[in-house]
């Protein structure tokens, strides 16, 4: 990478369909500026975010991963966001094992009305990851399995 150029981190955001994804939409509709570094993936619930998805993101070269869901008590599916919270806590420990700074994984509660918060989180997190610098993995961790494709084709 050209040293003169500013480091532009690549961040993956898993956004819950009901709250955070709508919040991101609102930020857009309201013409709020937010960092283009965040590349979003819609999931129905933050509870859908499988740890392997996060690890795979890092493996594929993401410098940061954001998981965003509804505020506690507001989950469209009652309690998916609590499950996400527990998973993220455990996942941070796993990341340490892999030598990945746990600050590269962030969990946020963003409601459908919080377009402003979405933009703020996107900008803040981008700056935070920029400060951490590019993620350097020695070698792709073997533990992260390729997805089992057959099951879907079946």
């Amino acid at each position: 990478m050209n040293q003169q150029q500013r480091f532009e981190p690549r961040i993956v955001g898993f956004l819950c369909n009901w709250c955070s994804y709508t919040g991101a939409d609102l930020a857009g509709v309201s013409r709020m500026k937010s960092a283009p570094n965040l590349r979003t993936i819609r999931v129905m619930c933050s509870g859908r975010v499988d740890p392997t998805l996060v690890l795979r993101a890092f493996q594929l070269g993401a410098d940061g991963v954001l998981v965003a869901g509804c505020h506690p008590g507001d989950c469209h599916y009652q309690e998916g966001n609590y499950k996400a919270m527990r998973r993220v806590l455990l996942l941070k420990r796993v990341l340490r094992e892999f030598g990945i700074d746990e600050r590269r994984l962030r969990l946020e509660w963003i409601s459908a009305s919080e377009g402003e918060k979405f933009a703020r989180v996107a900008n803040e997190f981008t700056e935070q990851v920029r400060a951490l610098g590019p993620l350097q993995l020695e070698e792709a961790p073997a533990a992260v399995a390729e997805p089992q494709l057959e099951e879907v084709r079946a």
Binding site: C45, D50, P51
Partner: peptide
């Protein structure tokens, strides 16, 4: 279709249509 079970299944036996692992 929340997908909580999909993320949790240790055998990867559950497909969440529309949001499958693939």
């Amino acid at each position: 279709g929340c997908g909580t079970c999909v993320a949790a299944c240790p055998a990867g036996a559950i497909t969440g249509y529309g949001f499958s692992d693939l």
